[in-house]
Simulated scan of single mutants.
Amino acid sequence: MVVCGVIGLAVTAAIDEIVFHQILGWHHFYDRSTLAVGLLSDGLLHTAELLALVAGFFAYADLRRRRALAPAHAWAGFFLGAGVFQLFDGIVDHKLLRLHQIRYGVDIAPYDWAWNIAGLVLLLTGVVLAFRAARRGPAAAR
């Protein structure tokens, strides 16, 4: 479950980085300095997410090779990782540390609600899938 949690976290970070940082240009990972620092912080985030994605897929491939991959647990881990990233970003990065906001120059309340509710939905999906996988047992989950 942990391996796919890393993959879920990395995929969600990549979607955030690509869509909101690059395509829409709404913010950078660190917006409390110059544009150059913001771009550097985006590059560091992108590097970390790619490293996590590569490491996660190598570990995933190893689990498959050893026939130790339980798909039900893997999906639970993926959604848990995605939800953890989304909520951490929305609560810790946006509100507690104030590294950046989702968007500037608009009322951010609807964006914050949407961002955090989406993270909660991802996390709760992972929790439900984890309970179902645990109930089925390790042998049935494969």
Rank of each mutant, 00 (worst) to 15 (best):
M1L: 11
M1Q: 09
M1H: 13
V2G: 15
V2D: 03
V2E: 07
V2Y: 09
V3N: 08
V3D: 00
C4E: 15
V6A: 13
V6D: 00
V6W: 02
I7F: 10
G8D: 13
A10D: 00
V11W: 07
T12F: 11
A13F: 00
A14L: 12
I15A: 11
I15V: 15
D16T: 12
D16K: 13
F20G: 10
F20M: 06
F20I: 00
I23N: 08
I23K: 09
I23G: 07
L24K: 14
L24A: 12
G25W: 05
H27Y: 14
H27T: 12
H28T: 04
F29L: 13
F29K: 00
F29I: 13
D31H: 00
R32T: 05
R32N: 13
L35C: 01
L35K: 14
L35N: 01
L35P: 02
V37A: 10
V37I: 14
V37M: 09
L40V: 08
S41G: 11
S41N: 05
S41D: 02
D42G: 00
G43E: 03
G43F: 03
L44C: 12
L45C: 01
L45F: 10
A48W: 01
A48Y: 02
A48V: 04
E49M: 11
E49Y: 07
L50M: 07
L50W: 11
L51W: 09
A52H: 02
A52F: 00
L53G: 09
V54N: 00
V54I: 15
A55Q: 10
A55Y: 15
A55T: 03
A55C: 06
G56Q: 05
G56D: 04
G56K: 05
F58Q: 08
F58V: 14
F58K: 10
A59T: 03
Y60Q: 11
D62W: 10
R65C: 09
R65N: 12
R66G: 05
R66S: 11
R67M: 12
R67P: 06
A68P: 05
L69A: 12
A72Q: 11
G81D: 02
F85E: 03
F85S: 05
Q86T: 15
Q86R: 07
F88M: 09
F88K: 05
F88A: 13
D89S: 13
I91E: 03
V92A: 13
V92T: 09
H94A: 05
H94T: 03
K95F: 04
K95Q: 15
K95Y: 06
L96I: 14
L97S: 05
R98A: 10
L99Y: 13
H100Q: 10
Q101R: 06
Q101W: 11
Q101V: 04
I102L: 12
I102W: 05
I102H: 03
R103L: 10
Y104V: 03
G105M: 06
V106Y: 12
I108E: 15
A109F: 09
A109W: 12
P110D: 06
P110I: 02
P110H: 07
W113K: 04
W113L: 13
W115R: 03
A118D: 04
A118V: 05
G119K: 07
G119H: 07
L120W: 06
L120S: 06
L124T: 06
L129S: 02
L129G: 00
L129N: 02
A130V: 12
F131Y: 14
R132Y: 02
A133G: 13
A134Y: 11
A134D: 13
R135M: 14
R136G: 14
R136P: 06
G137Y: 12
P138A: 14
P138F: 14
P138L: 15
